[in-house]
């Protein structure tokens, strides 16, 4: 499907906070209680609509393991939005936020929209980090804040879409240079040659797409 914009997201945060589950919930609308450890980076994509425009979200789900840090850092570049995730049932994941934030700020463009997400909100009984703390941290660092549950899908959609809205607004305000792909925004291939390269279905076109 054609889209007006493509936004690149990265999901960062300590291992086990539920990054891959959030992605799976957002892209496949399903929850997988047991998830393989992410190696390096995994990907997900979904189309959303903002202001009547089709926007494709290309989400890079990074490995949270400390050992992968050096590798995942290289993927920050060119992200328009970042979901910084912590686990409300594990205070240490909240405590590491500053390091993650520094990393993100250092390795990505300064206009990157960062959404702070306190995941596993369904596990209210085991909560270690109050919502207010999260809000305070977000306010302090100029982030958007939201508590989500990948399990119940609460706020998952909103977390991704609100981030996209923020990015979209920044585009409208001219903060983002959409022609600079380092900003993590690509203009859709609606009228790009990509479509013309597609072989006409019936006639069995003989033109192959793809780059070399």
């Amino acid at each position: 499907m054609s889209y007006a914009y493509l936004f690149k997201y990265i999901i960062i945060g300590d291992t086990g906070v539920g990054k891959s589950c959030l992605l799976l919930q957002f892209t496949d609308k399903r929850f997988q209680p047991v998830h393989d450890l992410t190696i390096g980076v995994e990907f997900g994509a979904r189309m959303i609509t903002i202001d009547g425009k089709q926007i494709k979200l290309q989400i890079w789900d990074t490995a949270g393991q400390e050992s992968f840090r050096s590798i995942t850092r290289s993927y920050y570049r060119g992200a328009a939005g970042a979901l910084l995730v912590y686990d409300i049932t594990r205070r240490d994941t909240f405590n590491h936020l500053t390091t993650w934030l520094e990393d993100a700020r250092q390795h990505s463009n300064s206009n990157m929209v960062i959404m702070l997400i306190g995941n596993k909100s369904d596990l209210e009984a085991r909560r270690e980090v109050k919502k207010e703390e999260g809000e305070a941290f977000a306010r302090e660092h100029g982030l958007i804040f939201m508590e989500t549950s990948a399990k119940t899908a609460a706020n998952v959609e909103e977390a991704f879409i609100n981030t996209a809205k923020e990015i979209y607004q920044k585009i409208q305000d001219g903060v983002f240079d959409i022609n600079n792909e380092a900003n993590g925004i690509k203009i859709g291939p609606q009228h790009s040659p990509a479509n013309q390269n597609m072989p006409a279905g019936g006639s069995g076109g003989n033109q192959g797409g793809g780059c070399c």
Binding site: V41, F43, A45, A194, N197, G201
Partner: peptide, 27 residues
């Protein structure tokens, strides 16, 4: 839309091949 179903580049993107290639390139 029909063509898309048989378009290598698009399908390659759908299967996240391009993303992996991009990530690999960054690496």
């Amino acid at each position: 839309e029909e063509a898309r179903k048989a378009h290598f580049g698009t399908l390659f993107d759908d299967y996240q091949g391009i993303a992996h290639l991009e990530a690999l390139e960054m690496l």
